[in-house]
Write a protein that binds this DNA or RNA. Structure first.
Lengths: 108, 108
DNA sequence: ACAATAGTTTGACAGAATTCGAACTATATC
DNA sequence: GATATAGTTCGAATTCTGTCAAACTATTGT
């Protein structure tokens, strides 16, 4: 069984909140990693990059509440994924141009 | 005669800096106003929206140093304009999708 | 039941950002 | 030259943000 953590509906996603969310080096990099469209475990090492788990939890919450990501719980694990369809509907082309502009090995 | 205030070259414009710059209600609204492609006087009432002139000066500086805008001086006046060509070259489609998503009368 | 695991929540703290007001610079006008 | 005007810079106050550590919740596994 899997449950979705609370998140804004597509209609309630605000551009300003998206920009505030991804205008941070850690969170922009998370978006870059999630841009493959797959679910990623919250605690995977390729995302954590040396930060504390409580710090990551905070960043996931910011992204989720801005409508950028969805988080589904699976047992005691959580997986994050980009809300690509919702974002494309609300802001056509935005995600594609953003992802294309994120530096590859953005190590900060 | 008009002079350009210092600004990063097109190649040095960083996506993260753009996002940090426009992830602010005042500056996102400035971008919306500048999206007509015209030069706008720094002190015009349609942009200031009740804020102090020193506050606006700060916001213009953030936008300019992020590579989002150009500021040209003209006597003792200054005009701001979007760096549309440079932004389109570095991050194709980004500005268009952003501008399309900025709420019309975004009064903060 | 007990222990281990994944992640959240809370509190604390340092650094950054927004805002204003006052002083300053430079240009324009009389 | 004197004055007015457009905008910048500096300093201070408040608020916001990112980070960690410790305690907590919930689930898994023995």
């Amino acid at each position: 069984m899997s449950e979705l953590l609370p998140q804004p509906s597509a209609d309630d996603i605000q551009l300003l909140e998206i920009l505030k969310a991804i205008g941070d080096p850690v969170r922009l990099q998370i978006v870059g990693i999630l841009s493959d469209g797959n679910f990623h475990p919250c605690g995977s090492d390729d995302i954590m990059l040396g930060l504390h788990k409580s710090t990551m939890s905070h960043h996931y919450k910011v992204l989720r509440e801005a409508g950028v990501t969805s988080t589904r719980t699976h047992g005691r694990n959580r997986d994050v994924v980009l809300r690509r369809a919702d974002l494309d509907e609300r802001f056509p082309g935005l995600l594609d141009s953003l992802v294309a502009g994120i530096p590859a090995g953005a190590s900060v």
